[in-house]
Simulated assay, not measured.
Amino acid sequence: MPGLGEKARYASLRNRSGTKGTNSLSGHTFRHKSAGAFGPDLAKKLSQLVKMEKNVMRSMELVSRERMEVAQHLSIWGEACDDDVSDVTDKLGVLIYEIGELEDQFVDRYDQYRVTIKSIRNIEASVQPSRDRKQKITDQIAQLKYKEPNSPKIVVLEQELVRAEAESLVAEAQLSNITREKLKAAFTYQFDALREHSEKIAIIAGFGKHLLELVDDTPVTPGETRNAYDGYEASKAIIQDCEDALTNWVTQNAAVSSKLSTRARTLSQRRKNATRGEGVDLSHQDQPLGDRESGLWIPASEHQGNGYEEEEDELDAPSTVATETRGREEERPVAA
């Protein structure tokens, strides 16, 4: 979190967006229409989803940068106000800046969800050739039976079709298994990230309201002088408490819990083995797939196939829109 009482801490914001580039919102329509226009039929719809999620990430990244600039200008505006308003707006700027930082971090974790979904698309693309081969042999057999019903090639092709169908069955089974695994992993990443982000935003909002209590909004008559402001130490303590709450937040202590009703829990139990009558209780699937506290969380930058730079591959439409690499700056305001 930025250092307290140092308005110059926001000066670096003017240069922060240099490595990320300018958000190209005008390219969203083009990318949305062109996504999935090329490549195997099986992967087209998912390719479009991956492209749309990329647009969502770029929009969130823009919001993050603008939120930080809002923090800067709130602090600048408050400088010319009375002591209490000046101090509180300065500290509110700190909190809003932190929201921008959290949004920036959320984009990284959202990208991990998107990359995992993208891996399903790649698997789907690898299955398409086996489907095409099976269909091609089937068409050849049908054509020969129509033109040359007694052709010896029919027997050979039928044997090839048996092998092609066997290969296709294996590929389809792998696709089915991987799709389910990756789907659950991808949305676990997203929901864990959403949960942490939302809870931390709620923490900041709560401490922001505590700051507002330091502003004396009692009406005064013309010529009347307000009591001298003495809340500087209190505002600093509130900011420190907020920082401690954010630092110490862990999933296990989340304030919001999603508990299933008895009916929902019963309906969500599925039979795993009809003979033994074993079931799968989904009511406890609230646990995160991996988090920073457990050391199992994989940073988005280390995830294979991560980043915007890999979007222009054989399954994506060629684009004239400049690609944007998501960069992570090391520069962060130093706490006082």
Score class of each variant (00 low, 15 high):
residue 2 P to Q: 06
residue 2 P to C: 09
residue 13 L to V: 09
residue 14 R to I: 14
residue 23 N to F: 04
residue 30 F to S: 09
residue 42 L to D: 07
residue 44 K to A: 12
residue 47 S to A: 10
residue 62 L to V: 00
residue 62 L to D: 12
residue 62 L to T: 02
residue 65 R to P: 02
residue 67 R to E: 11
residue 67 R to D: 07
residue 69 E to G: 01
residue 70 V to R: 05
residue 73 H to V: 04
residue 76 I to M: 04
residue 80 A to R: 14
residue 94 V to F: 01
residue 97 Y to C: 03
residue 100 G to W: 01
residue 100 G to L: 04
residue 116 T to R: 00
residue 122 N to E: 12
residue 128 Q to W: 12
residue 141 I to F: 15
residue 146 Y to H: 14
residue 148 E to N: 13
residue 157 L to G: 02
residue 157 L to F: 15
residue 158 E to W: 15
residue 159 Q to E: 14
residue 172 E to T: 00
residue 175 L to I: 06
residue 178 I to P: 06
residue 180 R to C: 01
residue 181 E to H: 04
residue 181 E to K: 04
residue 186 A to F: 06
residue 188 T to R: 00
residue 190 Q to M: 11
residue 191 F to E: 00
residue 198 S to G: 07
residue 200 K to H: 05
residue 203 I to H: 01
residue 205 A to V: 09
residue 206 G to N: 09
residue 211 L to K: 05
residue 222 P to Q: 01
residue 225 T to W: 07
residue 228 A to H: 10
residue 239 I to R: 01
residue 240 Q to E: 14
residue 244 D to P: 00
residue 253 N to V: 11
residue 258 S to M: 11
residue 258 S to W: 10
residue 261 S to T: 13
residue 269 Q to T: 12
residue 285 Q to C: 11
residue 286 D to V: 11
residue 290 G to C: 04
residue 292 R to V: 15
residue 296 L to K: 12
residue 300 A to Y: 12
residue 301 S to A: 12
residue 307 G to M: 07
residue 310 E to G: 05
residue 319 S to V: 08
residue 321 V to C: 05
residue 334 V to S: 13
